[in-house]
């Protein structure tokens, strides 16, 4: 897997999210897994079982932190208490990179706990990039920002989503957590060509890739992470690794979670695409 400065020059393979229904299996069976992604907020506590469990996982596995509430795009200033707790966790996990979303979700200190879409404007890109840089400087770990699934677009936008992503990561000089399922979901919801998106991102900045399932309704798709990955998303994955090289990949499965083996086997399907890529003469 290509190492770059955005993923801490690591060479991680196929991982899955660490989720409660699998704890017992993981601790008792000790399955071979390249790495686990944890949701940082689930472990940003002061004590108790979550931290005990994390210690046990860290004894045997590589862990990468993924956040859901940094809200780089919010006009609110960074929350120092949040950052201090996050840094404490970074020191504990030794995560080689840390990811969160290219979105906003709080205003005036009130949190929606959702990943709200950005207006794709230069002012938003500038503010977001500044907050990413400040976070990286405080945490002293590479940051990768993830493109989110979205269900609304703003009149005020001055560019496409992929142009906005480029603008932010160039200004912040940070990595990208490329979620190919989110590209698929948003392409359906907003009517753009997902391959145009993929072909426009700066491939050298891709630190990690997310794959996931979703739920299709009559008029829109919701990013529910409660199904297996569908073929069109795998095709996007194939194109993503064609551009970025075989990159640390993680399957997200957050609701109606099946057995550990089912989730892990679904994630390992990514290897087929990696092998196909490697079989093609340069």
């Amino acid at each position: 897997m290509p190492a770059n400065r955005f993923n801490g020059f690591t060479d991680y393979g196929i991982g899955i999210g660490l989720r409660i229904p699998h704890y017992q299996h993981i601790l008792s069976q000790k399955p071979t897994v390249d790495w686990f992604e944890i949701i940082s907020e689930n472990f940003m506590v002061d004590g108790g079982r979550p931290l005990e469990l994390l210690d046990k996982i860290l004894e045997q596995y590589r862990v990468v932190q993924h956040g859901v509430s940094m809200y780089f795009g919010s006009t609110d200033p960074l929350n120092r208490e949040h950052l201090k707790k996050l840094k404490r966790l970074v020191k504990q996990t030794k995560t080689p990179w840390l990811s969160d979303h290219l979105c906003w979700g709080s205003v005036d200190g009130r949190y929606t706990h959702d990943l709200l879409p950005m207006p794709y404007t230069f002012a938003a890109a500038k503010l977001t990039a500044r907050k990413i840089r400040e976070t990286r400087d405080f945490l002293e770990v590479p940051i990768a920002v993830e493109n989110v699934s979205s269900y609304a677009e703003f009149h005020v936008s001055e560019m496409t989503e992929w142009e906005f992503l480029n603008e932010v990561v160039e200004r912040a000089d940070c990595g990208i957590l490329l979620d190919v399922n989110n590209i698929y979901v948003s392409s359906f919801n907003h009517g753009f060509d997902p391959f145009e998106y993929l072909n426009s991102i700066p491939a050298a900045r891709v630190a990690q890739i997310h794959i996931a399932g979703h739920s299709k309704y009559r008029k829109y798709i919701l990013d529910t992470h409660d199904h297996a990955v569908i073929d069109p998303v795998w095709q996007l994955y194939a194109r993503a690794i064609e551009r970025a090289g075989p990159t640390a990949t993680l399957l997200e499965w957050d609701a109606h979670i099946p057995s550990f083996d089912e989730v892990h086997n679904e994630a390992l399907k990514a290897n087929q695409f990696i092998r196909q890529l490697q079989a093609v003469p340069a």
């Binding site: 205003v107 005036d108 207006p119 230069f122 002012a123």
Partner: peptide
């Protein structure tokens, strides 16, 4: 050149959307 959004306008937009969402 169309008028570009300012940071203050971004903040107003986020307040409006948050009010609607919540």
């Amino acid at each position: 050149r169309p008028k570009r959004q300012t940071t203050a306008e971004l903040c107003s937009l986020q307040r409006l959307m948050a009010a609607a969402v919540m």
